[in-house]
Amino acid sequence: MFKIGIIGCGRIVEEGHAPAFKELIKDVNVVALADTAIERCEKIGGILNVDRAHWYTDYTEMLKKEKLDFVDIALPHFLHEKVVIDCANAGVNIISEKPLATNLKEVDHMLKAVEKNEVILAVLHNYRYQPAMKKAIEITKAGVIGTRFIIRSEGLGGSHYAGTGAYDPDWRTKQNMAGGGCLIDNGYHNIYISRELMGADVVSVYARVNTYYHKIDVDDSAFLLLKHSNGGTTSIQIAWAVKAGGQGVNEVHGKLGSIFFGREGKPLGVFLNEKGTWEYPDVSAIPQNSFTGIFQDIFYAVEKGEKVPTDGYEARRNLQIIMAAYESARKEKVVKV
């Protein structure tokens, strides 16, 4: 059983990580919590039955006093670099929320510390584990819809994912804390999902990134065209600027068929060109909480001595594409990645 210490006990831990750890009670034991706001330790401690004696307002104390197999880091982006390096230097394996950092230089510092100390670094690309998405990835990898050539990924909303009042609910809207806006936060997911579903990496990006509606110093709207190494194209549209909400669109088109998410009220629909019919795969057996699935795969990989689902280098690659998109928007031209 792995002993876990959580660093950062905010909303994403309360709504995602903690419920996942409760589901994996046979495999993991959360033994310690660290957050600058003690009331957040109290909240998460109540959910996970972590005794008050193991709550810390300084994570470095936790690293000194607790015997941990992993830390789970869920902090604002700008704090990741120092915390990851401190944990690596303490010889503790690391699970981190995405993005790994606000820029590539910070990531490289982290990777150097991880290599030097020979610890594991896994990054939570958890949308791959949403039930319909997990099944769709399996279908594409099996070649059911053939070579993919178009992906549409569109989600327009009216605001960011707010943090808890114990810290700063709006840190995602501040450049010095988040490193960007809806693109680095929401769009990060769209990009790694498109790479997975296309089965080919991104080789260039053209982007329009703007702040249309909110009075914030980060982007609230982003529109991307990604060219993949197989010649395929992904279109991504994301926003915090549309109060009414937009029509969600998630489609994958291949030479043998197509995949739609949310068609006719079903989580997943598969159209086969040769048959001219729709099929609706059952996804009910897949864990509903995407964090449960990715945590499960991380711990399984470690037990077997295998590579974790998303290591630091894969996370760096995804952030590199994000940075290229911001550059494309500034220069108003296609940027190779």
Rank of each mutant, 00 (worst) to 15 (best):
I4N: 06
G8Q: 01
V144F: 02
V83E: 00
K243E: 13
T292N: 03
N230A: 10
Y213L: 12
R52W: 01
I191L: 10
C9G: 00
T102G: 10
Q288W: 03
N273C: 01
I139L: 13
V209E: 02
A113Y: 09
P267Q: 03
D108P: 11
L48V: 02
G262R: 02
A18D: 06
G158N: 02
K22Y: 04
P281L: 00
L104W: 12
V83A: 07
D69Y: 09
L121W: 11
V205A: 10
L100F: 08
G187T: 06
D217P: 06
P287R: 00
V252R: 06
G276F: 02
K304R: 13
M62F: 01
E251W: 05
A20W: 01
E314Y: 09
N250S: 09
V144M: 04
G276H: 00
A285T: 15
S235P: 07
L124R: 10
H189P: 06
D219E: 15
L24V: 04
D185K: 05
L79W: 09
E327S: 13
D51A: 12
I44D: 00
H80Q: 09
S284F: 05
N250I: 07
Y206G: 11
G163L: 01
A142N: 11
D217F: 09
K307E: 14
I298W: 12
V283C: 05
Y213R: 15
G293K: 04
K3L: 04
L48E: 00
S204G: 12
D217H: 07
F2V: 05
L68K: 04
D168C: 07
M198Y: 06
A136M: 09
L156T: 00
T292M: 03
Y161A: 10
R263F: 04
L24I: 08
A90P: 01
I238V: 11
T140C: 14
A325K: 07
H214Q: 10
V92T: 06
R152I: 11
D170I: 02
H125N: 15
P309K: 12
A162F: 03
E251P: 08
D27R: 15
Y300K: 14
F261Q: 08
R11G: 00
H160V: 12
G187L: 02
F295W: 10
W278C: 01
F78T: 11
T102S: 12
D35V: 02
P169C: 01
D219I: 02
V335H: 08
N318P: 04
E251T: 15
H253M: 14
I139W: 04
A329Y: 05
N318V: 15
A329P: 06
G158A: 00
I238F: 01
G231M: 05
K307W: 07
A74E: 04
N250P: 03
F260N: 11
G163F: 00
G155L: 14
N318E: 14
Q320I: 07
V249G: 01
P169V: 06
